[in-house]
């Protein structure tokens, strides 16, 4: 498929991104570059200096709402992408409301509790909807442990073992790899 054909096919697609941190911001940028028609992005946080070690924001954006800063960055790269940005903390109800028209949903939360909530909600309330999750990306090195597997409509990217901690923080390289694995999985699903 040529890039023109790819863009033509992707231009009608909608992808939901739950969370605009390390996974969500980098995944959204990759999808914007290849020309997804519409991105629906949610987050309730503001850009913090400590986010800049991995998240797709700039120093001058510190203090801005993440969803608005990310929308600005996406448009700066590819103005053809339509971005719906919601400054909300997702709940099962709002996941269903905001994401039911999406072709694919990307789970890009940081907390395990929130990951559980969206996975259970999508699997039970939006059956058949592909959900791409990021599980395990803390620290550095150990590139070969980052992998992909399918569990029904749940697509898992990550090492499924490395937990973030004081001594094993999330950093740009491994978080970026997993975010791009998620974007790559979205493309695979949409171009099938």
């Amino acid at each position: 498929m040529t890039f023109e054909e790819i863009q033509r096919r992707l231009s009608g697609k909608i992808v939901g991104i739950a969370g605009a941190g390390g996974l969500g911001s980098n995944c959204a940028i990759a999808l914007a570059r290849v020309g997804i028609g519409k991105l629906i992005i949610t987050d309730f946080d503001i850009v913090n200096k400590s986010n800049l070690n991995r998240q797709y924001y700039f120093y001058k954006q510190i203090g801005q709402k993440k969803v608005l800063a990310l929308k600005e960055n996406i448009i700066a790269i590819n103005p053809a992408v339509e971005v719906e940005a919601y400054d909300v903390k997702l709940t099962p109800d709002s996941i269903i409301t905001l994401f039911s028209d999406c072709d694919v949903i990307v789970e890009a939360f940081d907390l395990a509790e929130m990951k559980q909530m969206i996975i259970e909600t999508v699997l039970s309330e939006l059956p058949g909807k592909p959900l791409v999750t990021g599980l395990g990306m803390a620290g550095w090195g150990d590139t070969n442990s980052l992998r992909f597997r399918e569990e029904g409509n749940l697509y898992i990217c990550g090492d499924e073992k490395s937990e973030i901690s004081e001594d094993s923080p999330p950093l740009a390289p491994r978080v970026g790899i997993v975010a791009n694995m998620q974007a790559n999985t979205v493309l695979e699903l949409l171009l099938k």
Partner: peptide, 10 residues
């Protein structure tokens, strides 16, 4: 049976 471990980080 699938038991998926949810790990914080993102």
């Amino acid at each position: 049976v699938a038991i998926i471990h949810l790990i914080s980080g993102g």
